[in-house]
Write a protein that binds this DNA or RNA. Structure first.
Lengths: 253, 253
DNA sequence: TTATTGCTATTGGTCAGACCATTACGGATA
DNA sequence: TATCCGTAATGGTCTGACCAATAGCAATAA
């Protein structure tokens, strides 16, 4: 046989650039803070057009790996960064919206990750972390009549726990999962039956989580977090399903 | 105050396109299988250049949300897809290489997710799923002298479990985490002390996992998976750290 | 001497226009 | 009726140009 590994298509132009940058990052030759050659120069070097370079740079920038800024000198140019949070949010939000990643799968993964967060937070939480959680709790109390602001405070509480856990990947995943559910959740909020009742239940659960973390009871923290997420979702899922079905039929007419 | 929400920079050209596509996906107006307008037409519609459209399309394609193919008629054009696995792999691999997402954080998250996988797989596994696991087990036996192939079979085993669990997000995350550790792991393999001993230990652990899943013992499956991952990592971590430190000093000279 | 000003080069951001390769579709032909 | 070929549509790529922001330096003024 003749070179079985030879790809049928000889790499698109922008893939050449992508491969160049990625391989250097994976090899450790490009680190956070390092600068890429100017686009024009990179284009000459790899014998592709500047458009191809730009397309590749854009995809990596969208993943939080590169950051471009205009201008001469050291401040300008494209540098290697590592800001995965936003990228993860966008990624997950889109794929949840596309009904890939079914919402129940996301909930299940969220429980798993937040159980871990709760456990680690219980073991590692510093005073400032606990303060952030308390602040989110009071923010929820203050915003209990504004559903969007309430949800943001709710997210802040869970993110504070993830932050206290000290695990970057889990924290970013938690943020991404919460954000990916933000719009669907707000929709469900609008049509939920007894809002005041829901808030009262959530309030109790959140305080129980905080109490367990502060008390250093990791096992209990894990369990109340899971109960909390399941309980909240059980309340909202029916509304969510109805809205989902409704939007589907809407588009058919 | 005058329009406090007004962003200082009035959206870059490619961001206009990005926002157009993303908002339509989030609103449910664009679904998997739907076609985007041709690039030239979209450029006219949004009053940007075709380059700007292409850059936006590329970023979404890199996230597994769009797929472009040349040609006229229905087969050509850019369509909405939902293939997040590759995108997740690339994303995580880069950020792990950039030492964002410290390896220990990734391991911790992996344990959490694979515990869930093991539990769900125990409850949902079908005969074909179990067969896939067995096949991976025998593949490991056959490839015990080829470290790269062994690692691939090892990955296949864990992916088979994640697949049997039936949770798309967890499965894709599992694949991504395994892949992100592939190169570092192979490096560590090369310098590990007693390879035969390591393989023997892993073999026993893998069979214990399979046995628990097949027996329907979810609690035990969870626990042996966690023990397996921790044990393997405890063996490899010292080597990994040494390599890490070495590559750092290498670059300094 | 020191501080300010303004010019210039560099860099990413954007655009216009062209050409190529691939593909589907339909009409012409056997 | 079946086959073949031209044509149009589409993404892929390149070239070359100009803009906007920025830094650094040189000329100038205090």
């Amino acid at each position: 046989m003749i070179s079985p590994d030879q790809p049928a298509s000889p790499l698109r132009a922008y893939e050449v650039v992508l491969a160049w940058v990625e391989s250097r990052i994976l090899a450790g030759e490009l680190r956070v803070g390092d600068q890429l050659p100017p686009e024009r120069e990179l284009a000459r070097l790899l014998e592709v057009s500047r458009s191809a370079v730009r397309e590749a740079v854009r995809t990596l920038a969208a993943q939080g790996v590169l950051r471009s800024s205009v201008g001469a000198g050291g401040a300008g140019g494209t540098t290697v960064t590592a800001v995965p949070a936003d990228a993860l949010v966008r990624f997950l939000r889109l794929h949840v919206a596309l009904a890939n990643f079914p919402i129940d799968d996301v909930i299940e993964a969220r429980i798993s990750l937040e159980r871990l967060s709760a456990r680690l937070a219980t073991l590692h939480a510093r005073a400032s972390d606990l303060a952030a959680m308390r602040e989110a709790l009071t923010a929820m109390d203050r915003a209990s009549d504004d559903k969007a602001r309430y949800n943001d405070a709710d997210t802040a509480f869970h993110v504070a726990i993830a932050g206290a856990a000290g695990n970057r990947l889990v924290a970013d995943m938690t943020v991404a999962i919460r954000e990916s559910m933000r719009l669907p959740l707000l929709d469900a909020f609008r049509y939920v039956g007894d809002w005041a009742d829901l808030v009262a239940g959530l309030r109790e659960q959140h305080h129980a989580i905080y109490a367990a973390i502060q008390a250093g009871d990791a096992d209990r923290a894990e369990d109340v977090v899971e109960q909390h997420i399941r309980s909240a979702w059980n309340t909202l899922a029916p509304t969510y399903d109805v809205l989902r079905a409704h939007s589907r039929t809407e588009d058919m007419k």
